[in-house]
């Protein structure tokens, strides 16, 4: 039983290999980039605009609003990172409707990579906002005794991000595969629909959690971190 698209290997040379995860990711990147390019190529700044332009404008301004609601006062600064996280995960989930396509987010390697990106981005934005000293000091709050716990929390939440997304995506694909072998007609379709919903929710959760972590790291005001994150994770 294949759990991850990593196992489909198209080409390998020593350590370098071209598995399905990477290829499907490229495909997704290509579609996203070309689609974005096509839509924004004839962008109008006037009052009249095309449907596609309206759609992407709604999506982008929606992401921007969400980021701002989380507590980041300058959403445009984080839009590139957080927005791309959401779009990538959401697009991967949506792509599951294509027969034979396996979402790259169903590979733990991909989710770990995304979680690592968040893991790096949090101190990156935190240091940018507060400076190195202040950021590092935030690990010793409320007291220095909390330092190891804060560090453990930092690592564990990264791991949780990766595993949560992987588990959901992989299980979705897995259930469909199992159901296909048992009841080939109706149930796989229902489960695919459910999988789409789950995928969108996961995309939202992943990017919102990343936004919350960044917001907690960049918050200058001293406060108890991550109550919202705890709620969402629960």
């Amino acid at each position: 039983m294949r759990l991850s698209p990593d196992e489909i290997i198209f080409w390998q040379y020593g350590l370098f290999k071209l598995n399905a995860t990477i290829v499907y990711t490229w495909g997704l990147m290509f579609v996203l980039a070309v689609g974005a390019r096509l839509i924004t190529r004839n962008f109008s700044t006037g009052l009249k605009r095309s449907r596609w332009q309206n759609l992407v404008e709604i999506v982008v301004t929606g992401i921007e609003t969400q980021i701002e609601e989380v507590g980041l006062s300058q959403p445009r600064k984080y839009l590139g990172f957080l927005g791309t996280l959401f779009l990538f995960v959401a697009a991967a989930s949506l792509s599951t409707v294509i027969p034979g396509y396996e979402p790259p987010t169903g590979s733990l390697s991909t989710t770990v990579a995304l979680a690592l990106c968040v893991f790096v981005a949090v101190p990156f934005f935190g240091i940018e906002e507060k400076g190195v000293g202040n950021y590092l000091k935030s690990y010793m709050e409320p007291t220095f005794i909390m330092l190891p716990f804060n560090l453990i929390s930092e690592i564990s939440r990264t791991l949780a991000l990766a595993v949560r997304l992987f588990g959901n995506m992989m299980s979705g694909a897995m259930i469909i595969a199992i159901l296909l072998s048992i009841t080939p007609f109706i149930f796989p379709i229902v489960m695919t629909l459910l999988g789409l919903l789950t995928g969108m929710v996961q995309a939202y959760i992943f990017s919102i959690l990343a936004a919350v972590y960044i917001a907690a790291a960049t918050r200058v005001r001293k406060s108890r971190p991550e109550p919202e994150a705890q709620n969402i994770e629960a």
């Binding site: 759990l3 991850s4 990593d6 350590l15 370098f16 290999k17 598995n19 995860t21 990477i22 990711t25 490229w26 990147m29 996203l32 980039a33 974005a36 590139g80 990172f81 927005g83 791309t84 779009l87 990538f88 790259p104 590979s107 733990l108 390697s109 991909t110 770990v112 990579a113 995304l114 690592l116 990106c117 992987f166």
Partner: peptide, 22 residues
């Protein structure tokens, strides 16, 4: 389950995607 080469490649892919989207 974790293929570290794929992790690195996906990280790079993601960074490239961020740039492309931006």
């Amino acid at each position: 389950l974790i293929d570290w080469f794929t992790v690195g490649a996906q990280t790079l892919n993601f960074i490239i995607l961020v740039w492309l989207m931006k």
